[in-house]
């Protein structure tokens, strides 16, 4: 039996099955497979993972078929809604003082810059803020953070290059406790999540804060670069495993990258996006708006 006759046979048997309905639907209206493939490709081109894009579009397709819907805009609306739901699936983050915020992430994603922006944001809201230069590895990291501390007009605690990052954390915690500072933000060195020794170093910093400042609300935020691809998933998974994560800052959204990978991160790994970075200047930070984000995917 040839391929087509086989297919016909199979279809006969499943007349009322989904496949039959599909054939029916697509033979009669404009919302053919191509339309849904296009939708899926829009998502993939924004770095939504293939699997997530496939899941979402399949679900929408099924629903559209059930509702016998043929209106493209309506289907796109359904799709946006589905993505919105995923993006808001994780518990939103609320920061209460006294707070310690440790900012983590792989190399070059925008941790230090985001800390400068956050410090400025919180200081402008009337909180007292101190930042800790616990990146003692990268060349001129603490000098870079010092510039941001000046710009945001906040205090900085730092040691020399090559110092033990946990010692910086320890000093910073002692200092904010003594001064009753509302918010301590810790800058950490960029580290690839596959480097066990660097992840150990991070865990040590985590322990220092927990031990020395148990009364503080301790948040761990990962910074992700919007131009990253599917590796973002591995990053969040690993950092979450090792120190736990309370939120995501998605940077470099002023470029053309959409950062679609956060869709799976919010829903599957249950880490909410808290802020987005939209430039290199101190005010280029915004609270994450799921609706705007979804609209941008389809722009």
């Amino acid at each position: 039996m040839g391929f087509f006759s086989k297919l016909k046979e199979a279809l006969k048997k499943t007349k009322n099955s989904l496949a039959a309905k599909l054939t029916d639907l697509f033979s009669r209206n404009k919302l053919g497979n191509e339309f849904y493939e296009d939708l899926e490709e829009i998502l993939i081109a924004s770095d939504v993972s293939v699997r997530t894009a496939d899941d979402i579009v399949e679900a929408i397709k099924e629903r559209a078929i059930e509702e016998k819907c043929r209106d493209k805009d309506y289907v796109v609306g359904l799709l946006k809604e589905a993505i919105y739901d995923k993006l808001t699936a994780a518990e939103p983050l609320e920061i209460c003082t006294p707070a310690v915020i440790m900012v983590v992430g792989v190399n070059g994603v925008g941790k230090t810059t985001s800390i400068g922006k956050l410090a400025n944001l919180y200081a402008k809201d009337g909180f007292s803020v101190t930042i800790a230069a616990a990146d003692t590895f990268r060349a001129a990291a603490s000098e870079q953070l010092s510039v941001w501390a000046d710009r945001a007009k906040v205090r900085i605690v730092k040691h020399a290059e090559g110092a033990d990052p946990s010692a910086v954390v320890y000093d910073a915690v002692s200092s904010v406790k003594a001064k009753n500072t509302d918010i301590l933000i810790i800058d950490t060195a960029g580290r690839l999540h596959v480097k066990a020794n660097l992840m150990e170093e991070l865990k040590k910093m985590d322990r220092v804060v927990n031990r020395e400042f148990p009364e503080a609300n301790f948040y761990k935020i990962i910074v992700l670069d919007a131009s990253t691809g599917q590796n973002a998933y591995n990053q969040v998974e690993a950092f979450k495993d090792d120190v736990g994560l309370d939120g995501i800052i998605l940077t470099k959204l002023d470029g053309t990258a959409k950062g679609g990978f956060v869709v799976s991160l919010c829903s599957e790994l249950e880490v909410p996006v808290v802020y987005v970075g939209t430039g290199e200047k101190i005010d280029d930070i915004e609270e994450f708006d799921a609706e705007e984000f979804v609209d941008a995917l389809f722009e």
């Binding site: 993939i44 131009s227 590796n231 470029g255």
Partner: peptide
């Protein structure tokens, strides 16, 4: 960056 996504 080797981790770059679709935008590359």
């Amino acid at each position: 960056d080797a981790m770059t996504g679709q935008i590359a």
